[in-house]
Simulated scan of single mutants.
Amino acid sequence: MGRKAVAVSQDAIVRAISAVQKAGVEVKSIRVEPSGAVIINGDNPPKSEKSLEKPILDYL
């Protein structure tokens, strides 16, 4: 017995892209699976050592 494709709305894809961009990731490609999963491939910008140390100091 075959599975039906899940309908994914354009709004759901736009929300997913927006969330990824707000997280600071540059969107490179998007794929929508028959199961309804939205797969977004992207690149994170390089981080400096100083930017990585700051969050640790905020907790101390």
Rank of each mutant, 00 (worst) to 15 (best):
D58Q: 07
R15A: 11
A12H: 03
P55F: 06
I40S: 05
I56F: 13
E49N: 04
L52Q: 05
G42S: 10
S18E: 15
Q10W: 04
S35V: 00
E33M: 10
K47F: 13
G36Y: 01
N44F: 12
P45H: 04
M1C: 09
N41F: 06
V14N: 11
R3C: 10
K4R: 10
K54T: 09
G24M: 05
P46M: 09
I17F: 07
L52V: 02
K4F: 14
P45T: 00
N44T: 13
I40N: 05
D43T: 13
I39F: 06
D58K: 03
R3F: 12
G2F: 09
V32D: 07
Q21Y: 02
S29M: 09
V27T: 07
V14A: 14
P45I: 02
E49M: 06
Y59Q: 06
I17G: 03
A19Y: 06
I30V: 15
V6Y: 00
K22A: 15
K22D: 15
R3M: 09
N41D: 14
G36Q: 03
S29Q: 12
A12V: 01
S18L: 10
V20Y: 08
Q21I: 11
M1L: 08
A16L: 07
A5H: 04
I30E: 13
V6P: 00
D43I: 07
I56H: 01
S9N: 01
E26Y: 01
A16R: 04
P34N: 11
A16D: 09
K50G: 01
S29R: 07
D11T: 00
V8H: 02
P55T: 02
S35A: 09
L57G: 01
R31Y: 09
V25L: 02
Q10D: 10
V32W: 07
I39P: 01
E49W: 03
G36F: 00
I13D: 08
I56E: 11
Q21L: 14
E26A: 12
S9R: 03
S18T: 09
V38L: 13
S48F: 05
S51T: 03
K50R: 05
A5D: 12
A23R: 01
I13A: 08
V8M: 04
A23P: 00
A7K: 03
I13K: 09
E26M: 06
K4V: 14
N44G: 04
K54D: 15
G42N: 11
K4Q: 14
V32P: 12
V38G: 02
V32A: 11
A12S: 13
K4C: 13
I40L: 05
L60V: 10
E26F: 01
E26R: 09
